[in-house]
């Protein structure tokens, strides 16, 4: 198997690795690096459970080869917060009841983060559009969208 040398920044830490040319990013993150917050739901880019942020853009890590991420910056759910310091989106998801089984949650939060990083004040339609690549079978989406709207409202209240 051909190997590829890759250097990238993962959740703020520099990584230098050799990967098999056919290794998917999702497998590198989950199996080799132990970042199991990256979920594997379908393996074909339909469900969004494996969403990560690469250079500010969301990507299905099941559709990206590890060899392709050389020179990039990647954020997974593990890079967002910890028990003592939850990210505002994480806090809002809990508060709003937007978490049920939890399997779509990491990808959903990362898609919301990527949106707010680009546009801190999106409308409801834009929120729904940005989350449309992340399937949830439990919540019916309403509380997820509410959670994102709450974060926007709070951040606007702080800013004004």
């Amino acid at each position: 198997m051909n190997k590829a040398a890759i250097n990238f920044v993962l959740n703020g830490q520099e990584k230098a690795l050799e990967v098999d040319a056919n290794r998917r990013l999702v497998d590198l993150l989950r199996d080799d690096l132990g970042l199991t917050g990256v979920k594997l739901g379908c393996g074909e880019g339909e469900c969004g459970a494996c969403t990560v942020i690469i250079n500010g853009q969301t990507a299905n890590s099941c559709l990206v080869l590890a060899a392709q991420v050389d020179g990039t910056e990647i954020i997974t759910i593990e890079g967002l917060g910890d028990h003592d310091h939850l990210h505002p989106l994480q806090e809002a998801f809990i508060e709003e009841g937007a978490v049920q089984c939890g399997f779509c949650t990491p990808g959903m939060i990362l898609s919301a983060k990527a949106l707010l990083d680009h546009n801190p004040n999106p409308g409801k339609a834009e929120i729904m559009d940005s989350l449309s690549g992340n399937l949830c079978r439990c919540t019916g989406y309403t509380k997820i969208v509410n959670a994102v709207e709450n974060v926007i409202r709070q951040s606007n209240a702080k800013g004004s």
């Binding site: 917050g37 997974t76 028990h83 994480q90 978490v99 939060i109």
Partner: peptide, 20 residues
Amino acid sequence: FRRKDAVDKVLGRTLFSADI
């Protein structure tokens, strides 16, 4: 009340079967 399992779930720390 806050769900007992919600914090680990939003942090991506919940271990589902395939994560073990």
